[in-house]
Design a protein around this nucleic acid. Structure first.
Lengths: 139, 139
DNA sequence: GATTAGATGCAACTAATTTGCATTTAGATT
DNA sequence: AATCTAAATGCAAATTAGTTGCATCTAATC
């Protein structure tokens, strides 16, 4: 059983050809990929709806996460090991090529950038529950 | 000349009815708005393409910025005063209602959240130039 | 090898965004 | 105030992104 097969087994998904190929594509990509990117790498013979469904299945199972995007389509990348522990992500979006890179970071003051990456703009996104919704939550 | 008219003059855009109304809508919204949200608030009689074009015109002129989004459509909000100085943004996305709030922050350790906002997940987005593109840039 | 829940493929659909072009108008100029 | 023109608008049509429903197939279990 290879690496991808055991991921599928671990999260309780059936071993199918397209899933193994999708995992391989995501695991070997340095950058976040859109649905379109994945279909392109898969080549012909795979259904786009199945690709959509598997992307969201992987997101729900914690194998992939959706990254912030600069364009109009969603991008996804595989979860780094530390993410599940800290619940935190860091991403770098290149303003020229548009690629999204996942970065390691442990706390807000410790962000490690690959060499020669130049940051022009920094943005923090907090996700949670706003005061209105908090008020209406049933406990 | 009112507040909105002087914004248009400042950035060199013509004073039109739809632009004044759009500025009014954005300036009075606590949350980031999608194209759809804006059209809804404008009501009938305005062309959706003109709304799209004005949103991007405002973004290019630095009047609005695109916020990170949780759904599949882009959201926009007006630029806060300090943004132009620090080049930094902070946003809060409510996981229940889906609303995006713009937050004030001066440096990464000083993020001021409105009362009763509960953060489940934090994400940092750096934008800039990656090493590949940096290499290929002409100076 | 039979069973079945889960996975896939296809077709059709909705929503989001863009493009092209003809017409109109704000604001500058005479 | 009339004229001019670049910029703005409105409409139609196209493109792109993502979703839904359903019939068929198959991986994993018995």
């Amino acid at each position: 059983m290879n690496r991808y097969e055991s991921i599928l087994k671990d999260v309780g998904l059936k071993r199918t050809d397209i899933r193994l190929r999708m995992l391989n594509i995501f695991m070997n990509s340095e950058i976040a990929l859109s649905h379109h990117d994945v279909c392109e790498q898969l080549g012909d013979g795979y259904d786009k709806v199945t690709v959509y469904r598997n992307i969201y299945t992987f997101v729900n199972k914690g194998v992939l996460h959706e990254t912030p995007n600069d364009g109009r389509s969603a991008k996804f990348a595989c979860n780094l090991q530390d993410v599940s522990k800290t619940g935190a992500h860091a991403h770098f979006i290149c303003e020229i090529c548009g690629n999204t890179f996942c970065l390691q970071f442990r706390n807000s003051s410790e962000l490690s950038l690959p060499g020669n990456f130049k940051v022009n703009h920094l943005s923090i996104v907090a996700q949670g529950v706003c005061s209105e919704c908090d008020k209406n939550e049933k406990y």
